[in-house]
């Protein structure tokens, strides 16, 4: 069986990728943010995963409003970075964990999930930025990816409870996979931010800091919260945090919080990271 070697949570703000593209890593605005991720990068180098499952949302780059899958799963051989309007980015394409991805799709449908299954699709900053934060800028990515898209753009978005349930199926898929790959799961998005409406610029640092600890030690309240609670506490786009629940539910109920980092603001977002390992 494949092995879950860690669960990571991270923001995926597009400005992070843009800052790297423009060589702004060590400017006063960005240095404290990127410095805090160094321990996460080191953890990843030591952990040597074979597959990264990345749970994220598209931001009007791959999916338009003509068809909005609540959940979509990639089974492609290659995922190219999509042009989000600023032109193509100089980062390598992502190689898909094709067989394992199909296995996950099989498990999902067996467990009464009905995902859209994607054979040819590009990925936006939701996947790109977490990969850059944990793997840097390699010539080629050292892992294959399994992308999971969650709709967090057009309401109704899925409930936190449903994201949690998907995480349980993800774990089952990993544990029933005959290979011996080492799998890392990245729940991405958030933390607090709001881009639309007169409350734009809303950041809730207290809620963000509580999230980074709570998602490790006591995720139950976050699972029980409504979507409305997420919007109220974390802002309209901060509701992306429901995607971390997919990662968290795939882990043991007892986890060790190995690393955490918080920085606000990154662009208009409270940005943060956790590295979790299953407790022995």
């Amino acid at each position: 069986m494949a092995k879950i070697i860690g669960g990571l949570g991270t923001s995926h703000v597009p400005s992070i990728g843009a800052a790297l593209d423009k060589g702004l890593r060590d400017t006063p605005d960005w240095k404290p943010f990127f410095d805090g991720y160094e321990v996460g990068k080191q953890w990843m180098r030591d952990a040597k995963p074979d597959i990264a499952v990345v749970v994220f949302n598209d931001h009007g780059n791959t999916f338009f409003l003509d068809r909005v899958p609540t959940f979509a799963v990639g089974v492609a051989e290659t995922y190219n970075p999509v042009d989000e309007g600023w032109g193509p980015r100089a980062i390598p394409a992502f190689e898909g964990a094709v067989d394992f991805s199909w296995h996950f799709v099989d498990k999902l449908v067996e467990r009464h999930f009905d995902p859209m299954v994607c054979r040819e699709i590009e990925v936006d900053h939701g996947l790109q930025v977490p990969m850059e934060l944990f793997f840097g800028r390699p010539e080629a990515w050292p892992v294959k990816v399994l992308p999971i898209w969650v709709n967090t753009i057009q309401y109704p978005i899925p409930t936190p409870q449903r994201c949690w349930e998907m995480g349980k199926v993800l774990r089952e898929a990993i544990e029933s996979w005959p290979g011996d790959e080492r799998v890392v799961i990245l729940g991405t998005g958030g933390l607090s931010h709001q881009l639309q409406g007169a409350r734009a610029g809303f950041i809730n640092q207290a809620a963000d800091r509580a999230w980074l600890d709570g998602i490790a030690s006591n995720p139950e309240p976050y699972r029980a919260m409504t979507r409305e609670d997420y919007v109220e506490q974390f802002g309209s786009e901060g509701a992306e945090l429901i995607m971390w629940l997919v990662m968290r539910a795939a882990m043991n109920s007892d986890v060790n919080l190995i690393h955490k980092h918080y920085h606000a603001p990154a662009s208009m977002t409270g940005a943060g990271m956790v590295v979790l390992e299953n407790a022995a």
Partner: peptide
């Protein structure tokens, strides 16, 4: 959901009406 969420001040959610 969209009716309940409409009660969060200054926070429009992109729901059916907005999408259309």
């Amino acid at each position: 959901m969209s009716e309940a969420a409409a009660t969060i001040p200054d926070t429009p959610l992109f729901d059916r009406a907005g999408s259309i």
